[in-house]
């Protein structure tokens, strides 16, 4: 388990307080950044998908990453979490340079992500999905695997921890169900719970609300807020402005691969540049939910 920052108060109030004096300009320096990225760029063919000069993510806050379709948000996520390699750029996590670090190492260091298309492991039970998140399991080593008494105790402890999380996410009655039999919203919840099972310092949620039944939206929002209240940093990609306004402490706006604005939600939404970026492509962003099903074809239908 990575150490939580205990030298500072946590929660919404603390985050707002800490971000109060931060200048509302792209690439603004934060008082206590957990992630700092410099000159990160990624090109697909002739298209520059991401070209971020400088960006910092405040520790213990909920930061929203917004922008019209094709702004490069998911690509930036992929780059920061090591799932894709940038053409240029460096970034640090907890003041440690992590450019070029393998994605599974970053996850172990405490940077855990979820995916736009929910990746519930369908033909595995809910509890097995959760247990996969636990760190340092000796039973995951191939030689120990055949000697159950070396991992039984650890397995029991992990199971208890998983049950606590599942109860919190209201999935405790489904532990033996196949994850594939859950509804879309429940899968999102499971994915989030599973990410917390890793014991992350920062959770990066890629469109946590996409495809979720509106009735579940409020409870999902509550869960995200709770994550922050416990001192975990949250960075999430979202389209829904209302939701962004409701839960985020800080908003970073991307368009055409660049960070074009930053600030608290109220200020950002009044920013003429942001309005312009969105107005030009309002239509495009409304299409995203359908758009995910297009990509699902090539993914073998994970949607």
């Amino acid at each position: 388990m990575p150490a939580k920052t205990d030298h500072m108060a946590t929660g919404h109030a603390a985050a707002v307080e800490a971000l109060r004096d931060v200048p509302q300009v792209p690439g603004a320096p934060k008082p206590d950044p957990v992630v700092i990225a410099d000159h990160v760029s990624r090109q697909f063919g002739g298209l520059k998908a991401v070209d971020v000069a400088h960006v910092e993510i405040q520790r213990g806050a909920i930061t929203a990453l917004i922008g019209p379709n094709g702004a490069g948000k998911t690509t930036l996520f992929n780059l920061l979490t090591g799932f894709d390699k940038p053409d240029t750029g460096t970034w640090t996590f907890n003041d440690k340079s992590v450019a070029g670090t393998a994605p599974h190492r970053l996850a172990r260091m405490g940077m855990v992500r979820t995916f736009q298309l929910t990746k519930a492991l369908s033909r595995m039970s809910v509890i097995d999905n959760m247990l996969l998140g636990a760190h340092g399991q000796s039973g995951e080593r191939v030689l120990n695997a055949l000697v159950p008494f070396t991992w039984r105790g650890q397995e029991r402890a992990n199971r208890e921890r998983a049950m606590v999380l599942l109860e919190r996410f209201n999935l405790h009655e489904k532990i033996d169900d196949f994850a594939g039999s859950l509804s879309g919203g429940q899968r999102k919840l499971l994915e989030m719970a599973r990410a917390l099972m890793v014991g992350p310092e920062i959770v990066m949620l890629d469109e946590p609300m996409a495809g979720v039944n509106p009735a579940l939206t409020q409870s999902l929002l509550g869960h995200i807020k709770n994550i922050r209240e416990e001192g975990t940093t949250v960075l999430f990609v979202e389209h829904d402005m209302d939701m962004v306004h409701d839960i985020s402490d800080w908003v970073i706006v991307m368009a055409q691969g660049q960070v074009i604005a930053e600030g608290p939600p109220d200020a950002v939404m009044k920013n003429p540049q942001v309005i312009e970026a969105y107005l030009g492509s309002r239509h495009g962003s409304a299409l995203t939910d359908d758009g995910t099903s297009l990509t699902a074809d090539s993914q073998g239908g994970n949607a």
Partner: peptide, 10 residues
């Protein structure tokens, strides 16, 4: 089931 998900769990 899904390689990327398992990578994301470390």
């Amino acid at each position: 089931e899904d390689e990327d998900a398992v990578v994301s769990l470390g």
